[in-house]
Amino acid sequence: MKISREQVVQVAKLARLELDNDELDALTGQMDAILAYVDKLNELDTDGIIPTSHAVPVENAFRPDAPVPSLGTEKALSNAPAAADGCFKVPKVIE
């Protein structure tokens, strides 16, 4: 097994996914198969090859430090499920 049921539970928790037992069983099986498939890559000889972080050979995309107009409060909040006093309103989070 490449991944345990407990690990799937933990990953689901971190991703804020609520999964029932059947879903957990199914996903554990699927993820195990995916990881086994990816593991095939380990069969390749990668000695001397620099790890790749990006799929396209592009580097250094910059923008100048010059302001452009923002959306403004009204537009920014236009899709918010709840808003008040110019702010997004969310269920209270306590530090």
Binding site: A76, A84, D85, G86, C87, F88, K89, P91, K92, V93
Partner: peptide
């Protein structure tokens, strides 16, 4: 009135 809410400014 707002005791159950938090407000987000981005």
């Amino acid at each position: 009135a707002t005791a159950d809410s938090s407000f987000v400014d981005l």
